[in-house]
Amino acid sequence: GKVLRGAWTDENDQFTLFSAMVHREGVTIAQVQVPADTNEITQVRALLAGVPARGTERVVVTMDAAHTQRDTAEYLAGERGFDYVATCKGNQPALLKSVFM
Rank of each mutant, 00 (worst) to 15 (best):
V3G: 14
V3L: 15
L4I: 15
R5H: 14
G6K: 15
A7E: 12
E11F: 09
E11M: 12
N12G: 08
N12Q: 15
D13T: 06
D13L: 06
Q14A: 11
Q14P: 12
Q14L: 12
Q14M: 09
F15D: 07
L17S: 09
L17D: 02
S19F: 08
S19I: 12
S19H: 08
H23M: 15
R24K: 13
E25S: 15
G26T: 04
G26V: 11
V27N: 07
I29K: 04
V32N: 03
Q33L: 13
P35W: 11
P35V: 06
P35K: 08
A36D: 10
A36T: 13
A36N: 04
T38V: 09
T38N: 08
N39M: 08
E40D: 13
I41V: 08
T42N: 11
T42H: 13
T42I: 06
Q43E: 05
Q43A: 04
V44N: 00
V44W: 04
V44Q: 02
V44G: 05
R45A: 06
R45V: 02
A46L: 00
A46W: 01
L47P: 00
L47E: 02
L48N: 03
A49V: 07
A49H: 09
G50T: 06
G50E: 01
G50S: 03
V51L: 06
P52I: 00
R54Q: 11
G55P: 01
T56I: 04
E57Y: 09
V59R: 04
V61W: 02
V61R: 05
T62P: 07
M63Q: 12
D64A: 12
D64Q: 06
A65L: 09
A66H: 10
A66F: 05
A66C: 13
T68Q: 00
T68W: 01
T68H: 00
T68A: 08
T68C: 13
Q69P: 03
D71P: 15
D71K: 14
T72D: 04
A73M: 09
E74V: 06
E74P: 05
Y75V: 00
Y75L: 15
L76M: 03
A77T: 11
G78E: 00
G78W: 01
G78Y: 05
E79M: 04
F82T: 03
F82E: 00
D83E: 15
D83V: 02
D83A: 02
V85Q: 01
A86R: 06
C88N: 01
K89V: 10
G90T: 05
N91M: 03
P93Q: 10
P93G: 02
A94D: 12
L95T: 02
L95I: 05
L96S: 06
L96G: 01
K97F: 05
S98W: 09
S98F: 08
S98E: 12
V99G: 01
M101L: 01
M101N: 10
